[in-house]
Simulated scan of single mutants.
Amino acid sequence: MQCSRCGNRDPRYFWKDGKQIYCRKCVNFGRVDLGEPLVPYASKPRKCVCDVQLDFPLTKYQQAVIRQLNDDLREGHDVFVYAACGAGKTEIVMESIARYLKEGKRVGFAISRRQVVLEICERMRKAFPQIRVVAVCEGYTDQTDGDLIVCTMHQLYRYYRGFDLLIMDEVDAFPFRDNEMLEKIAESACVGQRIYLSATPDERDLKRVEAGELKMVELFRRPHGYPLVEPRIISAPPAVQACFLLSFIRRHQKQHKPFLLFVPTITCAAYFEKILSLFGRCRAFTSKTIEKERLVAELRAYELEFLICTTVLERGITIHGVDVVIWKSDHPVFHEASLIQMIGRVGRSITMPSGEGLFLCTRKTTAIKRCARALRKMNEEGDICVN
């Protein structure tokens, strides 16, 4: 027995309903009976007259990566784009999107998290005003067809054999990482080439590159030319860490600079909201938060001075001039990739290309040390590229 949608073969996940047997592993996406063929996504693509419209010129390093990416795609390869946080991964793939759409092919852009779907959708609409860009995620499923579909990984079940080009952002992130069901659904959604995007590829991705299954292009230099922000690491007892945190808050209030305070758990975020609301305008931001878009907008407008967030906000989000502090950065929930992504929120703006990242911990874990080494290596390789 094998599910035609998610590939499940475990008999524990099959259930008999009368004469029919169906897969329970992916039943949240709709019931699929054993042996039932999936219906390919039926929407007919149209040739779109579209060109990328950006408010800024691409750097020569981005242009070189774009040429290499498009050459690899024309040769029929899947490609992994390994680029530092803020290096312009989204802009790098836009020319490929435009080329496929002009050829009358279907393009999808899949991301792990809903918040990032909405942000990427707005960026795509601005870059491609001539086409219909549709966001498909929780709360946005009334319209599921368009010229360019931006969706969460979960929503790919709607698009069986639907895309000639599928771009998958942050493939090392939860919930896609190590999720065989989502991987199978994503694989079934594409009949052509795939582009994988990440600033933190895992060992499995790197092994696929070494084995020749994927081509890789790299970019470690941000468009503004400034190096990635490397964190200041404070290893001290909790009471001392608290003093550093309060000093950080006061200093940013004087500078009128927003920041993100990352904490390891939802419980910790709720506790900190109660305590730190005595010192400044703040709100907790977790997977349970309602009106996430409103809180981000209030931080951007500096109606809130900072957000106390879990790793739900570690990726994809861009906030002008934001700094980052990570409380208990030695907590097991913070691995190397998440630390790199969180510090990667800093210095993304062309007008504010630098900033501050602070790690507060009682000891320097392996993840903290590897994060610091990885950022230093990216900066060194970026310098080699420039020189």
Rank of each mutant, 00 (worst) to 15 (best):
F174V: 11
Q143Y: 08
L156M: 13
D147Y: 00
L182P: 11
D172A: 02
D178E: 08
Q143W: 03
S188P: 01
A186P: 06
N179I: 04
D147V: 00
C151S: 15
T152I: 07
R158E: 10
A189R: 00
C190W: 06
A186F: 11
E138R: 12
P175D: 06
C151R: 01
R177T: 09
A186T: 01
Q193I: 02
D142A: 04
K184G: 00
R194D: 04
T141N: 03
E170N: 09
E187N: 10
A173R: 02
M153V: 05
D172Q: 12
V150H: 07
V136F: 12
Q155H: 13
C137L: 11
F176Y: 11
A189S: 15
R161H: 13
A135P: 15
A186K: 11
C151G: 14
L165K: 02
D147G: 04
T141Y: 08
F176S: 00
C137P: 10
T152C: 03
I149N: 14
H154V: 07
C137T: 13
Y160M: 10
G139W: 08
M153Y: 05
C190G: 13
D164R: 13
K184F: 04
Q143P: 04
R158S: 12
I167N: 06
V136N: 11
H154P: 05
V171R: 02
L166M: 14
D178P: 05
G192Q: 14
T144L: 07
E183L: 10
G162P: 00
Q155L: 13
G192S: 14
